[in-house]
Amino acid sequence: MSEHVVSTKLYYAIWIALLVLTGVTAGVAFIDLGPFNTIVALTIATLKAVLVLLFFMHLKYTSEKMTSVVVISALFWLLILLALSLADYTTRPLGVN
């Protein structure tokens, strides 16, 4: 089988990292950073998601090029949905909402 076998040690390390990041994001939320609260929260969430994706879901080790193509296209299409919808909502005159 071409599938890569990941060492348990790495799994535990990722697990600890994810738990720590959860604690950090919950803690930081109570500190007033202005608009950066949202940015920090989403950055940490993305970091966690990337860890899960790369190590738990083996994206880092897979030999299949298609897997990353699928992941990237899914995110790209999500971006299309969000960006073009926002194109409407951010330019609507006030009062309509």
Binding site: T22, T25, A29, F30, T38, A41, K48, M57
Partner: peptide, 29 residues
């Protein structure tokens, strides 16, 4: 097992985003 695992991790990732988006919008004192 591998595929069910992928599904489970995906559901986990969704929650990783739901947690800050729903619970942490404005907690500052």
């Amino acid at each position: 097992i591998e595929n069910a695992g992928l599904y489970w991790h995906f559901v986990d990732i969704i929650w990783i985003y739901l947690f800050p988006l729903l619970y942490l919008i404005d907690r500052k004192k």
